[in-house]
């Protein structure tokens, strides 16, 4: 199933805006949430094709969002998940992989262009 709608949950405004801008330009329908709580609410209210989740988030960590979403089984199986972090060695980031993220990327390495490539492959 091709990816059309994307939810970005990222607290750094510079980084969030950077991804949102290039994703929109590439033709995706993008929503962006800054906090973990808002992100979870948004993900529950609408069925996105892809969730782009930062690990280190205020209020609610990326892993917690994934856990909470998994509780509602109707949501997770159809949404792809990409986890982004700059702390890839942290135990938290490691766990994200085991929680069934489809990709796991280091922000400093994943420029918007590369992100588009990854999303295209996932779709």
């Amino acid at each position: 199933m091709p990816i059309k709608t994307i939810l970005v949950i990222e607290d750094d405004r510079f980084i969030g805006e950077m991804y949102v801008r290039s994703l929109k330009k590439a033709g995706y329908e993008v929503d962006w949430m800054v906090g973990g709580n808002d992100g979870l609410v948004a993900a529950r209210n609408k069925q996105y094709d892809l969730l782009l989740i930062d690990i280190m988030l205020p209020e609610r960590r990326g892993n917690e969002i994934m856990d909470a979403l998994r509780g509602k089984e109707d949501l997770i199986p159809e949404s792809k998940i990409i986890v982004i972090t700059n702390f890839e060695q942290d135990e938290e980031s490691r766990m994200a992989m085991e929680r069934g993220a489809d990709a796991y990327l280091i922000k400093a390495e994943i420029t918007p262009k590369k992100l588009l490539d990854v999303i295209e492959k996932l779709g």
Binding site: D12, F14, I15, M18, Y19, R21, S22, K25, N86, F87, I106, K107, A108, T111, P112, K113
Partner: peptide, 21 residues
């Protein structure tokens, strides 16, 4: 080094965006 990664993410990302646009 971790702290450096934040600005590096932004610099690399926006260079990418700008060079594209």
């Amino acid at each position: 080094a971790h702290e450096l990664r934040g600005p590096i993410t932004v610099i690399r990302g926006y260079l990418d965006v700008i060079s594209d646009e």
